[in-house]
Computed example of a mutant assay.
Amino acid sequence: MDKPLKTPPAYAVASVDHALRIATMLQLEGALTVSEAAGRLGVARSTAHRLLQMLVYRDFALQDERHRYHAGPVLQLAEHSRSRTSQLRATALPHLRRLVDAVKESANLTIRTGDTARFIASVECDQALRVGNREGMVFPAHQTTAGLLLLAELTPDEVEAVHAPGRYAEQPSARPDLTRLKGELTRIRRAGFVVNQGRSEHGVVAVGVPVRDDQGVAVAGLSVSMPSVRYQHTELPALVATLQAAARRLEADLAMAPAT
């Protein structure tokens, strides 16, 4: 049985959400200035400063002599992982913005870590009814568009290892039905894209394609998300073609990016 779908809390606390997003940026991407944090969140510099100071107080962040903030003791990732993810995000953002301009829906870039998928970049469209920013959010990989794309790159034995029973000792019902999942991943591998209808969030449809490095290894999933009321199955071929073209342009830029 799958985990319950994620839905925003009825009474979201903006300051908590902002602090968690900054913590995610520090963990995945490395150093931030107050101005950079404010720009990413769309808040005043004074607000960003207060949030960062609280993260420092709680050991989620550290401030250096140049007044830049880094991940603190509570947030520890390997430096190489941070820089690679940061480069992937920075390279992808212009492509996400162009994709949003082209399809008029929100766009995301997502990576997989084990049996989870993390949104590392998100650009919202400007329609009144739209899928909101997903940056920093983590879902079970088998419930997300990009997660399914990246799981489809694995062998059946690797899929078994990623979803080993020991990972679900505290919640056995959260482990997916691997027979059904592996069959689905085979179909995704053949198709080269995914259509996710309400799997990670009710009322949302997402379509995605893989993004590959210069060795042909899928490193991320590129997707667009929309309210289900706007999804038209007849437009799927054109949408997939647009996504694939965007992925190829992103791959070309990634191939030219300096090694980290």
Rank of each mutant, 00 (worst) to 15 (best):
P140D: 12
Y57M: 08
E235W: 07
D17H: 08
R212T: 06
A255L: 05
H95F: 08
D64K: 01
S46W: 02
P165C: 02
H163N: 09
S173V: 09
L239D: 08
P258T: 13
R66E: 11
G221W: 05
T155E: 01
E160I: 07
R40M: 04
E201L: 03
A102T: 03
E235P: 04
A146S: 11
V34F: 10
E158P: 02
T7M: 14
R189Y: 04
V224I: 06
G203K: 11
T33P: 14
R189T: 11
R180S: 12
Y231M: 10
P156E: 14
Q232C: 02
R199N: 15
H202P: 07
P210A: 05
A174K: 13
G208R: 06
A141L: 08
V162F: 01
L5S: 09
L149R: 03
P140F: 15
A246R: 05
A161E: 11
A48W: 01
E153R: 08
H202W: 10
A90C: 06
V123D: 02
E160G: 04
L77Q: 04
V56A: 12
P4F: 10
Q87H: 14
L51H: 01
Y231I: 05
V195S: 14
V207G: 15
D115Y: 08
P73D: 03
G208P: 13
R187E: 13
R118P: 00
P165V: 07
N133Q: 09
F139M: 14
R248Q: 10
P165T: 05
A12H: 05
L239V: 14
A12C: 06
S106I: 11
Y69L: 04
H67A: 12
L5Y: 06
A259T: 14
V131D: 06
A255T: 03
A174I: 14
F193R: 01
L178T: 11
A10S: 10
D157Q: 12
G30Q: 02
A92W: 00
M137L: 12
R118Y: 09
S225T: 03
R175K: 13
P172K: 15
A121L: 03
G114C: 04
E235Q: 01
G114W: 03
A218N: 00
G30M: 05
R118E: 13
G136D: 09
T7K: 15
L151F: 05
Y168S: 04
R50P: 03
L55Q: 13
H233F: 05
M226H: 00
V205W: 07
G221S: 01
E158F: 13
E36R: 09
E170D: 09
F60I: 11
R21K: 10
Y168R: 10
A44M: 03
